[in-house]
Amino acid sequence: MKVAISVNGSQVGADVEDRTLLVHFIRDVAGLTATNTGCDTSSCGACTVLLDGRSVKSCTVLAAQADGHEVTTVEGLAPGPDQMHPVQRAFRAEHALQCGFCTPGMVMAAVSLLAENPSPTEEEIRSALEGNLCRCTGYHNIVRAVLAAASERGGS
């Protein structure tokens, strides 16, 4: 079927198989490969992107379901070249990653959280990241980074 999805503000149209998953559309059709396929069973959160501004696991959404909607991937966060989104900056400053595989999804989950709750508590952050698994960091620096990003963006 023909689908047209706004990916990071650009219209991406293609004729794809009906069963195409959004994560494959993003990686193979739009050519944006920061979004990872991890568990492929909606458990790990590595494929998290924003769909109409809210976090979703793109391995469990059909491209057809996103037809006519807006997708944001981690490549679409920074306001310009050589710039970073506050959450990206905080992840770097707080050393919130080691291998980096979960990071694109983790950043998008954090961006979605801060859009809904600009000044989350540590407990709220831990709860909001339940759908994103990290096998390196033990999560502490990730939580610190989200707290730092919230405070940089004017939260408490």
Binding site: G45, L51, R54, S55, K57, A109, S112, L113, G131
Partner: peptide, 9 residues
């Protein structure tokens, strides 16, 4: 239910 991403969908 699930996690935030699951609850969004």
């Amino acid at each position: 239910v699930g996690d935030p991403q699951v609850r969004h969908r």
